[in-house]
Design a protein around this nucleic acid. Structure first.
Lengths: 329, 329
DNA sequence: CTGAAAGCGCTTACAG
DNA sequence: CTGAAAGCGCTTACAG
């Protein structure tokens, strides 16, 4: 485990100054002849500039931190994967730091800052004002993805969950359902609350109120159990809106177990539009929660902020779309 | 965007030397009194050591690079997510660099090395000898996950795909099937080849040979189409082994479309044991491809290599297990 | 265009 | 125990 090749080694072999090496790989002007000699020496030694050392000067590491909370749903996992790919495509590196609780989000952000990242993206979580303030002083932009906190000074990119919930409710009302239920997850997270609020508002628009509500754990099994509970009541719902697609798939399963026909006996509608929703065996009607568009906005804003742009106070809101498939009339 | 707080600022405020600050946050000895003053000043200024600068001295960045090829399957995505979580739990940071082609794996590894990462894990891909050689000279350990290349000098952690394929074949033979087919993906990747080879060997063990083989694209749709092709032939297979679970789920779908009963008309067996395989609606018999155990081994070996341990030439092989569910007799 | 020098933020022998 | 100094690998004004 010898010492790595440094610019000094290259300079010596090429018979030039370390500055010449630096300029060859960086910004400055070098004559073609010098450049050739430096390149040849570098090739021979297998030299590559130490970007970590370089960042000490320029202040830029090309590192983007992804602080992720709620690694729970399929949609979230895909989202993070896409984020990583996009960050890489744009010539940056993704430093991924999963966090569990809200306290650990703060801690993760601080850790990211220790690495002098150029920007921090928090997926599905919030940051304490104290940490926000500190990072602002350091000039590290923080972005909230799939969450919006007014007046936080943070730039936010989020789907319109309120609108999505409303979309679902209105559609079910329009289809003529009259006993419409919601399947929620235990935690009233930002998105859960917004979808539910929008859903209730949508029912109100149609002159209805919520028929029933069941609380399930996260995921397929949670949706299954919650639906089983609703399907075991004296009066059954005739339509179900589920917090997300996975739970909706569990609800479809529950309907099968209870010999209920979907959508004739009970309509089911999910949220996110994960790939499985389109599988013919499920063919789930759902609210499409875009991934590509918000990520593109996010990436552009990260670049802009890097160029000194001010944070945009208004959130970047992406509108969801209803995708009608086979689980509704 | 002012300059960040440095040890110098803290030293001045506390009225001590920069060395004292350094020692307070690092290794050296400091008196309780000095430490207290340094800590107080740090708190006041919001100082945190710049780990990037620190790494320039110690040579350790606590960065682990994850170079991922084949971001395609659900199993792979989950695997990478788990790897990131485990790396973080062990106090390291995950630098995730997705690569598409094999050439880009080399390039990604070099980029990772530019960041002076402590170790590189390549998931589902190989490295050219040239790059291996260069990294060895730098003393950066490279690990191959889900792949084994003999005499590469790389430490490998992989499931026994050959054994897994064999397991599947033997089980189907034991169940009395006589027209056993394989659904493969277009690329003869390392794992695809090994599973197929093992499968053929297992059939041979039972005195049979492969009845048919179909080539589908990756994923659910690929499995669906490949199965449709087999189910449209004059003579139908009575059992299907699929490269992975997603393709197997597609095959189940195809059976439903063709009004074939599973497992009575056709048995289906997958590979990986993704969460969806256990969903009652699928209830897929499959070969369990462990995640936790190999990751644990990998993490331990990364730590050991960091402490100067030599690479282990023999691969760390994890044995798969047959999980019998409802899609086989 | 080129090189010597200063400096990014840190740590670690070296004296005291 | 503590501080002044050298150095990690790089870049960037500053002279020439």
């Amino acid at each position: 485990m010898q010492r790595r090749i440094s610019a000094k080694d290259v300079a010596e072999l090429a018979g030039v100054s370390r500055a010449a090496v630096s300029r060859t790989f960086g910004q400055g002007q070098v004559s073609a002849k010098l450049r050739r000699r430096v390149l040849a020496a570098s090739e021979e030694l297998g030299y590559r500039p130490n970007v970590i050392a370089r960042s000490l000067i320029g202040g830029k590491t090309d590192l983007i931190a992804l602080v992720t909370a709620g690694h729970d749903s399929i949609h979230n996992t895909m989202l993070i994967e896409r984020l990583i790919v996009e960050i890489t495509h744009r010539g940056k590196r993704a430093l991924v730091i999963p966090a569990s609780s809200d306290a650990s989000i703060d801690e993760s952000i601080l850790k990211a800052a220790d690495y002098q990242v150029d920007a921090i993206v928090v997926v599905g979580g919030t940051v304490s004002p104290k940490v926000v303030d500190r990072l602002r002083r350091f000039g590290v932009p923080i972005f909230l993805y799939e969450r919006y906190v007014a007046d936080s000074g943070l730039e936010c990119v989020t789907g319109n969950n309120l609108g999505g919930g409303r979309l679902a409710a209105r559609y079910l009302v329009r289809c003529g359902h009259e006993r419409i239920a919601y399947i929620t997850k235990p935690l009233m997270t930002f998105s859960n609350k917004a979808r539910r609020d929008g859903f209730l508002a949508g029912l109100r628009d149609g002159g209805q109120s919520i028929f029933a509500e069941a609380n399930g754990a996260q995921g397929f099994n949670g949706g299954f159990r919650a639906a089983m509970e609703l399907f075991s009541a004296k009066q059954l719902p005739d339509a179900l809106f589920c917090f997300n697609d996975e739970m909706a798939l569990g609800a479809i399963q529950a309907a099968a177990v209870m010999k209920l026909r979907v959508p004739d006996d009970v309509a089911i509608i999910g949220y996110d539009d994960i790939p499985m929703a389109a599988w013919p065996i499920f063919n789930l009607t759902t609210i499409h929660n875009a991934i590509d568009r918000p990520i593109e906005i996010l990436m552009n804003r990260i670049a802009a902020r890097g160029d000194g742009d001010k944070p945009q106070a208004e959130p970047h809101v992406i509108e969801p779309e209803l995708v009608v498939r086979g689980t509704t009339l």
